[in-house]
């Protein structure tokens, strides 16, 4: 399922990041959505809604498991660490409600997936933002 070498390199790189990473939430450039509120991001990332507010399907992406970035993102989003998020998704998945976000193996992989799918939504550190994606939410905004 996971390439251990890539995961280790990824984890080593992510560990260099500070705990309070500044994130942006991004979508495919062709997505009609131009902005989301924090609550709308929560609704999608916590499996409450499976679509964007306009009704189009949403496919959330996660950064690798056990990375500081993923942990930090969920702490900033819903004040829950990855351990709690994993238990939360086990509840949703096995109660038949929803499937968890797809896990990318790196930020580059997340950007590639975002570029290739109009339904994808992801989060990346603001300093790794590229023109290939569209920002719909910034964590330093209310």
């Amino acid at each position: 399922m996971k390439n251990p070498l890539l995961l280790m390199i990824g984890l080593a790189l992510f560990n260099l990041d500070a705990v309070s990473t500044e994130f942006v939430v991004v979508v495919n450039k062709d997505n009609a959505i131009n902005s989301l509120s924090k609550r709308e991001v929560i609704d999608i990332y916590m499996g409450r809604y499976l679509t964007f507010p306009d009704g189009e399907m949403a496919q959330p992406l996660d950064l690798p498991s056990e990375s500081l970035l993923k942990n930090d993102f969920y702490l900033q989003l819903v004040n829950k660490n990855e351990q709690k998020i994993n238990a939360y998704w086990a509840r949703l998945l096995f109660s038949g409600r929803a499937k968890p976000p797809i896990s990318a193996i790196s930020i580059e992989d997340a950007l590639k997936k975002l570029d290739s799918s109009p339904y994808s939504i992801g989060y990346i550190p603001v300093n790794q933002l590229t023109d290939a994606v569209k920002v719909v939410y910034r964590f330093n905004e209310n």
Binding site: R91, F94, G96, R97
Partner: peptide
Amino acid sequence: SEYPHVGYAY
């Protein structure tokens, strides 16, 4: 009651 069998979840 939607996931009583999933020990990982509680």
